[in-house]
């Protein structure tokens, strides 16, 4: 089944003619140069490309973390540019979960407090929020580390807390920006497997910007970005053939 044959409501994210320009020292740089991308509900999609290709800019635009210079992003068929600040906050709180390369946990809060924070913003009663936090931390295998601060956890554990936090309000999309970028090979693989599991079991759409080839193995589709444009999109079927080659590159 190709992406084009899906009915419109099957798409959880669509971008149309996305352009993002940065001005640096009087020079204008086009980080995104007309990106059209349709992401299917429930898929695990990797956005691959070398550093500076525009991956992170695309990530920020899809996540509503930065405004594109032109073009639009639709989340569940809603044009993000039409949302006001509080609707955008609602979207970030309920619909999208974020995972970052550098984890971005709040350093003064424990694992459980970090995971509970989005539930507070969602207006969930405290008890329910704590229950949800414990459930999510158990899910990522950190049930025994609830009251540890980020500084007392390893990189892999911190990223697990970040994953638990991203899922706290049961979003339909999880956006991950280089989630394995700061992790060693083994820990990175574990994080990728965890994301894949959550994708399969919870049906959450995972969009991951990465240049980690281990990600290719688990992705339903891989979008290659080069110079701010979609260079090619590979489907699972094409990928299976290539996995051997790619693994050989390590």
């Amino acid at each position: 089944m190709t992406a084009a044959s899906k009915p419109a409501n099957e798409y959880v994210v669509r971008t149309k003619g996305l352009v993002k320009e940065f001005t640096m020292g009087g020079e204008t740089l086009r980080a995104l140069n007309g990106v059209d991308l349709d992401i299917i509900r429930g898929e695990y999609i990797s956005i691959m490309g070398p550093s500076g290709s525009g991956k992170s800019t695309l990530f920020n635009a899809i996540g509503g973390l930065d405004k594109p210079s032109s073009g639009s992003v639709f989340i569940n068929d809603v044009d993000m540019a039409q949302l006001d600040a509080s609707e955008l906050a609602y979207l970030r709180c309920h619909t999208i979960g974020y995972i970052f390369q550098s984890y971005n946990l709040i350093p003064v809060m424990t694992a459980l407090e970090n995971v509970t924070l989005p539930t507070i913003f969602a207006g969930m009663p405290t008890d329910e929020g704590i229950e949800r936090g414990i459930e999510m931390l158990n899910k990522v295998g950190l049930g025994h580390r609830l009251h540890h601060r980020p500084s007392e956890l390893s990189g892999g554990q911190q990223q697990r807390v970040a994953i638990a936090r991203s899922l706290a309000n049961r979003p339909s999309i999880v956006l991950a920006d280089e989630p394995t970028g700061n992790l060693d090979l083994k820990t990175g693989t574990e994080i990728i497997e965890l994301l894949r599991e959550l994708n399969k079991n919870e049906g959450v759409t995972i969009i991951s910007a990465t240049h980690d080839y281990k990600m290719v193995d688990v992705s339903d589709r891989v979008v290659w970005i080069r110079d701010g444009k979609v260079a090619k999109i590979e489907e699972r079927a094409d990928l299976d053939i290539k996995v051997g080659e790619i693994e050989g590159e390590h």
């Binding site: 509900r41 006001d84 609602y90 709180c93 339909s172 049906g203």
Partner: peptide
């Protein structure tokens, strides 16, 4: 896709 279409966007 168990989450079905997400509920309409409200205000935070």
């Amino acid at each position: 896709g168990t989450q079905a279409a997400s509920p309409a966007i409200q205000r935070q």
